[in-house]
Design a protein around this nucleic acid. Structure first.
Lengths: 348, 348
DNA sequence: CCCGCTTACAAAATCGTTTTTGTAGCCGCA
DNA sequence: TGCGGCTACAAAAACGATTTTGTAAGCGGG
């Protein structure tokens, strides 16, 4: 390995000067162009790459940020991470992605690892359950800029990027209502999940405003679970149950796309065709939704955008830390968008 | 931050002794238990965490391995990465995952970043095109244990983990043949993709052995592309074209699951039902395949297993490096498995 | 009694940077 | 002539560990 001293020797200057020149430090102002050229040429010739450990040891900077995902098998995560990664790449930061597997011990272990590696910021993608105050405590202690995606903690000392679930709920029901559907079934999210209540609120308030009656026999709740794939299973079972009841419906609002897939499977097995016999709408707009047959109508979250936004927030946070200012906690709520595809259709 | 010197001061020993004890270095043999206890207690009391940069600077170890994925949006990657991550986690290594976006510049940049961070090994998930000798050159230069998943380089100096594509091809066609299908359409992989030829070879050799005639009018090729989602599009278009031709078929072998999804969409739009009017079989067994309606029959790759195997190989490689032995290049080829679901059915 | 071995620890060197402090020449100005 | 302020660089001090080398006490054996 070629060190800064090798470059110093080769160029005929001291390692101090080499460091100053190559980092374009403030003192580089006083160094004549010809010296700089010489040093840069030596460095390039020798293929000098500074040792990041030595550098970080001294300078306290790592150009690294940690990204903790609660469950990477959840397709919802991928576009978000893409957004994070793209934004960080442009800013010359390296993300370290950890997959927590929805497991507290793993979360703590990975947090430790990231902190040990002195990540300059933390982005937590809390796409599934179990987030609570404990975690918050650990994070606050760490005192590095942190943003949560997908959940807002009650204590608002940590930044967050979320989607406007209430608006999303409204978009879904409004769409079906406009298509003429009146007998609509619902599979709501698990009660413990933060997204569930506001989505339902959006639905209910639209219903109230439009004199749409919500039949309690057509309302189901996903059970709690720590496995994103389980919402497919549950969507299937609950829809199966709905079909068995005597209360008919012409459309179904699923809590998310996975649930919608389960619902479609159940409807299909019951001999009902989607969308001809029953319209189905999802929520999230994961990649698979566009590829499904029928292509899924859904409320689309700006996932990649959310990732980028999160990076913006922590980047500002890092700057605050560098300037020894206190980092403010920001809370951004993005608007979802209705994406109409083939799983919903006008009521005949 | 509490340093080793703080622990030394608190425990009343020198930092040397503290280091020796906490790392359980060879010299720790000579240190009496009572001293060890005292030091460990101090360390715990103060919450001492060694500075990894200082440590790595001196000891040359990082307990980090790089994982380079060519396109993270490809659902095929996720289970593999899960396998990698799980295995590394158990071995107390931290993976650094980079998403190359199928872009050469990005690949090189990320490789640089990983090498700068002194990853102790490299796992390259070459799930899509463009891998060629250039890359190989860069990797060899780096002289750290490396394994490629999903591709085997001609030059066999780099380890690889692949699936037995030929066997997979055979499994697919055999399944359809057993179900009684004789008029079978094929959508083959892009010519430049390493997986394409062996899969086709498996199919052809089975056909030959069983007197099954392969109608050239029913054979299509996916175009080259660097976007995994594109195989859905292409699968759709090519199937649409197949349906338009006058040569009928009762089953279709898709190059991969994405292609199969596209095919199903096309068949469905043409008024053909899957599997009643046409059976469809895929390849890969990505997560979505089980959730599709109809659930996709497919040739399943042991993705998670492949990730774990790759970790095993590089772990051995790391040990070789530590013991200054030369690292051998291993080539493991795993058997895929037929997973029968609902998209294929016995010919009436 | 002395040598050499084991035990128990400490001092000092080292890893490769960055940053602070030092210094020496030169220029302009009072 | 002397002094402050640039300019251009170097020496040296961190950063926080690990590793090598050193040392001193105790003890058994020739």
């Amino acid at each position: 390995m070629v060190t800064i001293r090798d470059v110093a020797k080769d160029s005929g200057f001291s390692s101090t000067t080499v460091s100053i020149v190559l980092n374009n430090a403030p003192l580089a102002r006083y160094i004549p162009a010809v010296t700089k050229k010489r040093i840069e040429k030596s460095a390039k010739k020798l293929g000098y790459r500074p040792n990041l450990f030595a550098r970080s040891l001294r300078s306290k900077r790592t150009h690294t940020v940690g990204a903790m995902v609660f469950d990477l098998t959840d397709p919802y995560c991928i576009p978000i991470f893409r957004g994070i990664e793209s934004a960080l790449y442009q800013a010359s930061y390296l993300p370290i992605l950890t997959d927590v597997h929805n497991d507290r011990a793993r979360f703590e272990r990975y947090l430790e690892m990231l902190l040990d590696r002195r990540v300059e910021a933390l982005i937590v993608l809390a796409n599934w359950l179990f987030v609570n105050i404990d975690v918050l405590g650990d994070l606050e202690k760490s005192s590095i800029p942190t943003v949560m995606i997908g959940q807002e903690l009650e204590n608002d000392s940590i930044s967050s990027v979320t989607v406007d679930n209430e608006l999303g709920g409204r978009l879904a029901i409004e769409h079906l209502h406009l298509l003429g559907h009146r007998k609509i079934a619902f599979i709501r999210g698990p009660k413990t999940l933060g997204d569930s209540a506001p989505r339902w609120k959006g639905i209910r308030s639209f219903a109230k405003a439009n004199n749409l009656e919500l039949d309690p026999h057509l309302i189901m709740d996903l059970p709690e679970s720590r496995d994103p794939a389980s919402s497919f299973e549950s969507g299937f079972k609950l829809t199966d149950e709905l079909v068995g009841r005597k209360h008919s419906f012409t459309a179904l609002v699923a809590f998310d796309d996975m649930t919608a897939f389960g619902a479609i499977r159940a409807l299909s097995q019951a001999g009902l065709r989607v969308p001809e016999d029953c319209s189905v709408i999802g929520f999230d707009d994961i990649a698979a939704s566009a590829l499904y047959t029928p292509a899924l109508t859904t409320v689309s979250q700006p996932l990649e955008e959310m990732g980028k936004l999160a990076v913006g927030i922590v980047a500002d946070g890092i700057n605050c830390v560098l300037e020894k200012k206190t980092v403010p906690a920001l809370h951004r709520k993005l608007a979802p968008e209705l994406v109409v595809r083939s799983s919903t259709i006008k009521l005949r």
